[in-house]
Write a protein that binds this DNA or RNA. Structure first.
Lengths: 138, 138
DNA sequence: GTAACTGCAAAATATTTGCATCCTT
DNA sequence: AAGGATGCAAATATTTTGCAGTTAC
């Protein structure tokens, strides 16, 4: 809770219930969250719109980042360290478990550089690995 | 057009106008296409539903594959070679140009292996690189 | 007190499903 | 002729916008 307040203050965001509770949820959740997960997992029932706006604010301030998916949802996860407003450095690997369907950020696994064809200049890369996670191996 | 028919026959799909025209569009398009692009770029106006179903059929048959995005749309692109029904091998890098917003498949750039933490078993990986493409460098 | 945030209502957009009709084989 | 694909209608779901009331500072 202390961390929650610190994060909000650091980003000069006013302290409101929805922000506190949603950020709290991110802090205590291991994996990534979709919009729907947030609606499900908060005791207080915020308006859908508030959730949208809160996620947008957090993203703009570099508190969370988006994870690309192939199922037209957006997943969000906490930015661990170097993210700043407008300029994300979430160059770590995201792992999606095909069994339990959890998505986790592997903050220690850095996305490797690839050699692109002539004329292409990379700015940012994202990597998503699918497979079985350490809870689901058998 | 000949290729279009071959692809449909190879996958035992019946030859219909929508399938021919949508597949044709993929064959002549360099980058990836979103649902909306397809509705825009086909002269004949198919029902939205038909486009959904056609994309689903193509995906299930390994004719096209989905590209992960962070803006809750799904992008689709032709599978160049080794895709088979139910088992995609689209382990190449996707490049999204931040300027012209085109997404292209870099079929020759293979997604590098990464070392995952203990217990995680990778099955498939996807990589999306953002930057400026060879048309937009200045 | 003021600016910013929330909740409600409603609009706009996107996706899915059922069913009758039409087309491919 | 039979099975499958399409188009339409409608149900569902998702996202965005405007505005009035409330809250944080």
């Amino acid at each position: 809770m202390k961390e929650t307040l610190e994060i909000l203050k650091r980003n000069s965001l006013s302290i409101t219930d929805s922000r506190k509770i949603i950020l709290e949820l991110f802090l205590k959740t291991e994996g990534a969250l979709a919009h729907a997960d947030i609606e499900k997992n908060t005791a207080v029932n915020f308006d859908r719109v508030t959730v949208y706006r809160t996620l947008q604010t957090f993203t703009e301030n570099g508190i969370i980042h988006q994870i690309p998916t192939t199922d037209n949802t957006i997943l969000y996860a906490l930015c661990k360290d170097k993210c700043e407003a407008g300029h994300h450095h979430d160059e770590h690997v995201h792992f999606v478990c095909v069994n339990c369907e959890k998505t986790v950020c592997m903050d220690d696994v850095v996305v490797p550089q690839v050699k692109l064809p002539k004329g292409f200049v990379p700015l940012q890369s994202a990597m998503v690995v699918k497979g079985t996670c350490n809870d689901c191996k058998n």
